[in-house]
Every structure is written in C-alpha cells, then in structure tokens.
Design a protein around this nucleic acid. Structure first.
Lengths: 202, 202
DNA sequence: CTTGACTCAGACATCGTTGTCTGATTTATT
DNA sequence: AATAAATCAGACAACGATGTCTGAGTCAAG
C-alpha cells in the first residue's frame, strides 16, 4: 500500500491555513483544560477559554461528540509520548516502573477529569479500546517483572495495570486536594505502587 | 440536653402518611439506581423508575439538589451500617480489614457511580466532609495496624485510606466490566489492599 | 494585491430539563 | 364514613445547550 496520489500525512490530510491550525490547537487546549475541571463544560465555555467564537468550533468539529473524541485522542497521545520517553524497556523492572510513573503521573493528573467524562459517554469496551495505547506502554514492563519474580504472578497483568492506574489517580487527587504536598504524593504513589504489585519475598 | 417537648425523632421529625413514606423510599431507591448508572439522570427518568409522576418528587424534594443530597446521605448510611456490622475493632488488623472490605465492597461498587456525580457538584472539602463517616469506620483499624507494625507507618493514615478506597473501586470496576469474575476480583482486591499497606517484613 | 480561507458578531430554531401550578382522583387515618 | 393527605395527569414558563445560518470583516498565501 504505497502513498496515495494525494500527498496526505498520516492522520489529518486536510490542508488548512496556518490560521486555522492555530485555532484548532487553541480549541483543543481550551477543551482539555475546561473538561478536566468540569466534564460538562459547554461549547460556549470552551470557546470563551479558547478566545474564539462558538461558531468557530463548529467549523472544525461538526458536533460536540467530535470535539470530545479529538480531545481524548489528543490527551492520550501526550501521555503515551511521555511514557515511551521514559523508556519502559530499559533497566530493572522496579526502577523502570518508577521512572515511567514519575514521568507520567503529573500529566495523567491533569487529564484526570476526562476519565469521568468518557466513562459516562462511552461503553466500557470502547473506553478500554482507546486507553489501550497507554496500557501497551506498561504491559511488557509488568510482564517482564513477573518473569523475573519481582512482581506477583498470582494476579493477572490486567489487574496490576488497573491497580497502578488507580494509585496514580489517587495520588493526583490527594495532592490536588491539598491533603499532601506534591512531592510526598509522588513518593507515596511510587512506594505504594511497588508494594502493591511486588512479590512477597523480594 | 434532654428531649424537647416536641416528640421528635432524631433526623426527620415530619409526620408523614404511610403512603408518603413509601413514595419517598421508592424515589430514593430509584434515584440511587438511576444515578449510579448515569449521574446525569433526569428527574423524569428517576420518577419513571420509581413508578411515580415527576411532580411527586418535587413534593418531597423541593429541588434536584435536595434529592441528590438525600440520596447521598442514604447511600453513605447504608455503607456505614455494613461496615460497622463487620466489626472493624475485633481481631487482628489484617483479618479485620479483610472482613470489613469483604462485607463492604459490593455495596460500594453499587454506589460507585455516585462518586462521579458528587465530585462534579461538590467542592473537594464538602465531599470529604460527607464521606467522613465511612472513613471513620476504617481509620482506627488502620491506626491499630500501624501501632502493631503490621501496616506501614512511613505513610499517613489518610493515604492508606485513599489507596484502599481506590483499590476497592478498581475491583468493582474490573468485575463490573466483566474482565474478571466477581470472586476473583474480591480475592485480588483483598490481597492487593493488604500488600499495598502492609509493612515490609511481616 | 488579490483571492479565498477563516473568523467574528449575532441571530435563530429546536430540544431537553427544571420547577410550578391546577383540578380531579385515590388513599390512609380516625 | 368523613376528613385530610397524597398522588396523578397534564399543562406551563423559563432556562440553557446544541447546531445552523448570514453577512461583514480579517488574515494568510499565491
């Protein structure tokens, strides 16, 4: 399947003016912020935050659902990039996990609110499908740790992944609520995550 | 402070007809179910599920917010009752924790959706204040475990509580999504929760 | 500089939801 | 059986959100 005659880049082959490109970016960023703090943010609110008129959003995203999908893809791409940048494959599993989580957790925290949104509007399967890219970054790492008997093997990988996700979100939640400072939250998250999935006798 | 001249029971001193009592109960139950599956359920939807006309809800709950508050109080009361029924104070900390979680987690799962609702409409502090009764059931248990060096003392109790809550929710989520059967989810939840908060050398 | 793409300002119809009200009917209580 | 309480059925206004449209103005690219 070689290149089509149309000189299309991979995802959005539309040729837009630099102008429009900026608008889309602004809208995406604004939507991310707005929806993270309130998943029911209206199009007006998003437009206002983006410094744009509401109708402009509809030029680029025909419907609210389309915008939501785009925002989700945008957010996940950012997280995946941060994760893979932390090289999950390198070094001993425990250290690799710490490295990845450290690099990721603040970002995940930022997008925390989006989860609520998506659990509401998407089926569980669909949601899982879209989160896949993030899990794919961690899954081999966990499996590697299991093979080395560093992580518990009596529980499925999927469970470990779910637990780690939950602990990361907990840390962001507790720190965002001012219950514990960010640095302590990070430390607590790391050590609890390790504890939770580590095999008994180290 | 002895009894007031008015023969008032503790919470709701209103003298209602048996009739109305049933309606309120039906509405509360319906709202619980409806909101758990969709936090944005409309009054119509709730009324329909309760086998009642929408106007009837407004007879007992002047506004949507009032209903939401009542539902939340109702749900929390149920959970607290289940928890205290499991006698958190009795026996060794690890076993007591297992007992309490086992008795509670399915119920908590049922109300899982309400959390999303309340995080949206309430401030973090207010939310925390209302969840207090549930935490109060667990807190002494965790502290007891820490004093016996069974649970980690290098992390605050509040953190342990948050982690436990997160793990329970994760279990309910994974099992509800059909990723693992309920019994396995329960086992995984228990053993992970213990792992997460236990001190290193048992 | 000229053209076409893009944005703005503001209006509009449509829809669903909340909250109120009325009058007729049923039901619990005594 | 009589009385008061509660529900029903259905209408209503008010509101906010989505999505569409128009016409005028602005900006990037050739």
């Amino acid at each position: 399947m070689p290149k089509q005659p149309t000189p299309a880049e991979a995802p959005a082959p539309k040729r837009r003016r630099a102008d429009a490109e900026r608008s889309v970016a602004a809208i995406l960023d604004a939507a991310l912020e707005a929806l993270a703090s309130d998943p029911d943010s209206s199009m007006s609110a998003i437009a206002r935050r983006a410094g744009v008129v509401r109708a402009t959003i509809y030029v680029h995203f025909p419907t609210r659902t389309d915008l939501l999908d785009a925002v989700m893809e945008y957010a996940i791409a950012q997280v995946v990039e941060a994760m893979s940048g932390a090289e999950p494959h390198r070094g001993r599993p425990v250290e690799a996990l710490e490295r990845v989580l450290r690099a990721t957790w603040r970002q995940l925290a930022q997008f925390h609110g989006l989860l609520a949104l998506n659990t509401a509007r998407l089926s569980a399967e669909e949601l899982r499908r879209r989160h896949r890219p993030m899990l794919d970054q961690l899954e081999p790492l966990i499996e590697r740790g299991q093979k080395q008997s560093v992580f518990r093997s009596d529980l499925p990988v999927a469970w470990h992944l779910a637990v780690i996700r939950a602990i990361v979100h907990t840390a962001s939640h507790e720190s965002q609520g001012g219950r514990i400072p960010e640095s302590e939250a990070e430390a607590a998250m790391l050590s609890t995550a390790i504890s939770a999935i580590s095999a008994r006798a180290l």
